[in-house]
Amino acid sequence: MAIFRQYVLPFAIVFVFFIALVAVSARIFIPNDMAAPAPIEEINSPQKAELQLPPGLSVLVKGIPDDLALSDQFRMTIN
């Protein structure tokens, strides 16, 4: 057990550190256009437009529609 604590475990820790260092340093060699974060934009696809959600799930995903949110059904009253 002492050999594991004195030799194997410290070597494993240093080895993991150097693997992480190499992975992070690899960004230096990536072309500039690939090193930038990916752009975030809305993609309109025909498949996405055809997707119909059940009414209960639709409210959870998209939120309450404005016309329903303004109705008396969702208003909170304090007595």
Rank of each mutant, 00 (worst) to 15 (best):
F15M: 00
L53M: 04
M76E: 14
I30N: 10
L57I: 03
I28S: 07
R27S: 09
I40W: 13
K48G: 10
N44P: 14
F74D: 04
P54V: 06
N32R: 12
L51K: 10
I30Q: 09
I13W: 02
V22A: 08
Q52M: 12
I19G: 03
I64A: 07
Q52Y: 11
Q73T: 07
Y7C: 14
F17S: 05
E42T: 09
P55N: 08
A36P: 03
R75G: 03
V24L: 11
L60K: 05
A12S: 07
P55G: 03
L9A: 04
N32Y: 15
A69E: 06
I19V: 01
F17M: 04
D33I: 02
T77N: 13
Q6H: 13
I43K: 08
I78L: 13
D33C: 05
R5M: 10
Q73S: 09
V24N: 10
E50R: 13
L21Q: 05
P55L: 03
S71G: 00
T77F: 13
N44D: 14
I43E: 12
D33T: 02
A23Q: 12
P10S: 01
I43D: 11
F29M: 05
P54F: 14
A26G: 09
N32S: 13
D72E: 04
E42K: 15
P39T: 00
L51D: 14
F4L: 12
L60E: 10
I43C: 07
L51R: 12
V14W: 15
I64C: 09
V59F: 08
Q73W: 15
A2Q: 15
V61C: 06
Q73V: 05
L21T: 02
P46E: 09
A38M: 13
N79F: 15
L53T: 01
P31C: 01
A12I: 03
S45Q: 10
